[in-house]
Design a protein around this nucleic acid. Structure first.
Lengths: 294, 294
DNA sequence: TAAACATCATGAGGTAAATTCATAATGTTT
DNA sequence: AAACATTATGAATTTACCTCATGATGTTTA
């Protein structure tokens, strides 16, 4: 291929002004440059593109063919360039969020609703990270932001703190364990534990609380939805471990009680991870800001 | 605008090979050239286009935007280039024919039917030259070939002889003038002359026969269609002057008689005029060949 | 019909841009 | 850590494009 967008622009200008000199003026080049350019096109295609002895300049069928191409292509190119400029200015973009923690959906959904109003041009999507590794996906460009609770050092990823949280045991308000101020691993040995349906390694209650103490609950039951887990707990089918932000409102209803896990509580920090190169874009920073305030 | 088709091709190759070096190989440039090229694009748009630390190379949303553009634009460009090459080779083209002489339609129609079978890729059209000047239209590129009976010297037009013809007086087989071997202008003074509905200057019978002798026919009647003129003549409503090729078959039916005009007959030559730059193209030459043989 | 004008074409020369070459830098795998 | 794979960089070179000056051609005008 030989044809360049520059050629299409020149041809269109010639066609529309009907005059080499005026077309040249419009393109901010000399008439000579245009003449040379057309000549090289005609030599390459071995076909004349316009009729010299007519006023205004007329195109040959071959020239008209290229004009047709120009009319198709130039608007596309211009549109894409404008989009890209907006991408650069952070006005246009994609925010595909991967969440590693199931419960994050509870605070993320309302945050995203507010975010969408501020940034209607940003294509927002959430992927709950069950079947894939979120951080590698971020590096590969499959997603644009990961909500994670364990930051790692990386040259190409940047982690921003969002807020700290505490995982609490939640149980019916009249549960015997409410008599204790803090829960020990052994306390759960006789309980039915309700969890999200993910691998045990990814559940802090196992990896950070029960497994180190070598305790296994009496039974484990799984549910996908946070609201269903809370219902099951309220109706006495078991206990669960959930982050405090989920429980704040649920506790106020009075039917559920919460207690910290272990002597110092099972605390953690949530982070937003993004690719370092994109960290400074306005629409990402704004999401992080909104997420912090929840 | 800055983006060129070359850039789109590079991006697509990078995207499809997932590797700068392989993309460079495919594009027949060095890996360094591609790296520089991408860098300049990224500087221009002030946005990264692909993620360096991923294998295979992945594009950023901005890069994907450009890939989308490339996928739209490159096939269009390639298609147009191929079409143009075919135009240059004369496989593809346009043959809009203007005819100055009304009667030419009679032989042109069957010629074009044959022509269309040989050149299905050529867009064929006929314009009967009543409301416009055919040769200027040819120069302006509005039409591609003109059938004309008077060639003129021109730097940008080329005339090719088609065949000679003779204009004959046609009348009913039992008309009194059939007693004469040749017709003189004065012979028509008492006749109703049937002509095509065009300006008298463009009718040879006036410009070359009656007007030089200062003769005016008893009446003039006009009809658009050759077949209607012949019917009118056959039913005794008048006489007409038509080229021999029209009359060859009509005469054989026996109801019409023809006679030459003037002492040496009113003879002429038909030409095909085309733009000099296009004269040598195969599809035009082939039309001329077919027209000569009729 | 020549002169003035308008317009496109051409060739030489300069400039900027794109490419190559050689090698550094970086990240990945063993 | 060493070997490897891959991209980035800087300098040199080549190429492509543009401008300038002017020629050529066709068209109006006096």
């Amino acid at each position: 291929m030989f044809l360049e967008i520059r050629h299409l622009r020149s041809l269109l200008a010639i066609r529309e002004t009907g005059n080499l000199a005026r077309a040249a003026e419009r393109l901010h080049v000399t008439q000579s440059a245009l003449s040379h350019q057309i000549k090289s096109l005609e030599q390459y295609f071995e076909a004349p593109l316009f009729l010299r002895n007519s006023k205004p300049l007329r195109l040959t069928p071959a020239g008209e063919k290229l004009i047709g191409l120009a009319r198709q292509v130039l608007p596309l190119v211009e549109g894409a360039e404008n989009d890209l400029r907006r991408v650069a200015r952070g006005e246009l973009g994609r925010l595909h969020i991967a969440i590693e923690c199931h419960a994050c959906f509870e605070w993320l959904a309302p945050v995203l609703n507010r975010y969408r109003q501020q940034w209607p041009q940003i294509e927002v999507d959430i992927r709950v990270g069950v079947s894939f590794e979120a951080l590698p996906a971020l590096q590969k460009g499959e997603v644009d932001l990961v909500i994670s609770s364990d930051p790692l050092k990386s040259t190409d990823l940047q982690f921003a703190e969002l807020f700290d949280y505490e995982a609490l045991l939640v149980m019916p308000a009249d549960h015997p364990l409410t008599r204790k101020k803090r829960i020990q691993p052994a306390d759960l040995a006789g309980e039915t534990l309700i969890t999200y349906p993910v691998n045990r390694q990814r559940l802090d209650v196992f990896s950070r609380f029960l497994q180190p103490a070598g305790v296994e609950p009496a039974a484990v039951r799984q549910s996908e939805l946070t609201s269903v887990i809370l219902l099951l707990v309220a109706s006495g089918r078991g206990v669960a471990v959930l982050p405090d932000w989920v429980l704040r409102e649920a506790e106020q209803a009075g039917t559920l009680a919460t207690r910290p896990l272990g002597p110092r509580g099972m605390k953690g920090m949530l982070y937003a991870a993004v690719r370092r190169a994109e960290f400074d874009t306005a629409y990402l920073q704004d999401f992080i800001e909104l997420a912090r305030r929840r």
